[in-house]
């Protein structure tokens, strides 16, 4: 899909999922699948989820845009029962993440592999807009890199979450992060956690085992 170049639109505007700036980028719908049971990293998780549906959210609409400095993904999905908190301990906040390869060879299905990291930008409904940047080299290995570069904003309205996840195209970091270039192609994937279904960690819905294509529109 295409990340439109929205010249002169500041990052704060991009971060508003209800801003008119989002009228322009074309939305694409992606079917999601639950993460395969066999890939869950502990036997407890595999046995306790054997008879439960992993991945309540079945499809999302995604838009992408950049302003030459920051790229933003706007992700929208329907849920009748949003989860904003950890409740009484027994539920989890809804979440969304965009994954990008930090190494061209990194597989998305396993969250990267040793020596082939992926980079994930992460939103949680209860994080007050503090996005989280992670890297991972395989299932269960994700590490928080920082809480400063990724900006997020989620709005729940009329049975829908609209979440924007944004980061500077390039950041200064020695850590394994994705660096994006205007006018070039990139890859990405999306994951959604339904907190009322106790989805957290590897229990999630995602865009599947193949990276999705993204082309960053060049400046005019």
């Amino acid at each position: 899909m295409k990340a439109n170049y929205l010249a002169g639109v500041d990052t704060a505007t991009l971060l508003d999922p209800k801003s008119n700036a989002w009228n322009q980028p074309k939305a694409e719908t992606f079917k999601l699948m639950g993460t395969p049971l066999g890939m869950q990293p502990t036997e407890l998780i595999r046995s306790s989820w054997a008879k439960k549906k992993i991945g309540q959210v079945e499809s999302i609409k995604v838009q992408a845009a950049h302003n030459g400095e920051t790229i933003a993904f706007r992700i929208e999905w329907a849920t009748k029962a949003p989860s904003m908190t950890n409740g009484d301990n027994s539920i989890f906040p809804d979440g969304a993440a965009v994954a990008l390869p930090a190494d061209a060879r990194a597989p998305v299905i396993t969250m990267g592999a040793q020596g082939m990291p992926i980079n994930a930008w992460y939103w949680r409904a209860n994080d007050g807009g503090h996005g989280r940047q992670l890297s991972a080299e395989g299932i269960g290995t994700s590490e928080t890199l920082d809480m400063e570069f990724v900006k997020t904003n989620g709005v729940y309205e009329n049975g829908h979450w609209s979440v924007v996840i944004a980061r500077a195209l390039k950041i200064e970091s020695k850590k394994p992060v994705a660096q994006l270039e205007v006018g070039q192609d990139a890859k990405f994937g999306v994951a959604i956690w339904d907190g009322k279904n106790q989805e957290r960690g590897g229990i999630k819905a995602f865009t599947g085992g193949a990276w999705l294509d993204l082309s960053l529109e060049a400046g005019k």
Partner: peptide, 27 residues
Amino acid sequence: CPRKAIEKREEDGIVLINEDRCRGYRF
């Protein structure tokens, strides 16, 4: 724990949650 966030110490067997690795999944 799917994140190997809980360690059983080699030297004395004390079981500790590493809060830097824990992401609050509650498994």
